[in-house]
């Protein structure tokens, strides 16, 4: 078995009903492993971008891209090269605040990680944090010592550096 890595695949798709179904169904049917999937509009009104993180070896990744490309509603698709990729994820974390001292401990952690406190209650804080998944993992590890009440992560979204884009012809 070849080594598997997390790879990011970016697909430009028709922005219409059913497209997300055919994409996710393809992953289920072909037994590809989705680590995360995010969907949002693009700069073009009738196109959306689906950013998928898959855990795959070279061969599987090749199939992921080719099979996605075969879907008629997928207009363009490519792997984002690991050395020229910018990835971001956003997390909202509701942290337990046992005491006043700990509240200030939490807030200094948030500052170090360049997060923001977006909601405050007597027993909790809600923190917004953005960054690479690694950075978010590290922050969450710290927060676990206080106790995480609730967590929502968006999953990865990504673009490649430079002027190149996942074009319609690809």
């Amino acid at each position: 078995m070849e080594h598997t890595h997390n790879r990011v695949v970016s697909a430009i798709v028709e922005n219409k009903p059913g497209v997300l179904h055919s994409v996710s169904n393809l992953f289920r049917r072909r037994n590809f492993n989705i680590e995360s999937i995010t969907v949002g509009p693009t700069e073009t009104k009738d196109l959306a971008r689906i950013t998928i993180t898959v855990n795959a070896d070279e061969k599987t990744l090749d199939q992921v891209v080719k099979q996605l490309d075969k879907l008629v509603d997928v207009v363009g698709v490519a792997e984002l090269e690991p050395d020229s990729i910018v990835t971001r994820e956003l997390a909202l974390v509701k942290v337990n605040v046992p005491s006043v001292e700990e509240r200030s401990d939490i807030i200094s952690c948030v500052q170090v990680f360049r997060g923001r406190v977006v909601d405050v209650s007597p027993e909790s804080l809600m923190v917004e944090i953005t960054g690479t998944p690694d950075k978010i993992d590290a922050f969450l590890n710290l927060m676990r010592t206080f106790g995480i009440i609730e967590l929502a992560r968006t999953g990865i979204t990504a673009l490649s550096r430079g002027a190149r884009a996942v074009s319609l012809e690809e």
Binding site: K59, D62, Q63, K66, Q67, D69, K70
Partner: peptide, 8 residues
């Protein structure tokens, strides 16, 4: 003719 068959 189907690129996805190559290497499948």
């Amino acid at each position: 003719i189907d690129p996805a068959e190559i290497g499948k």
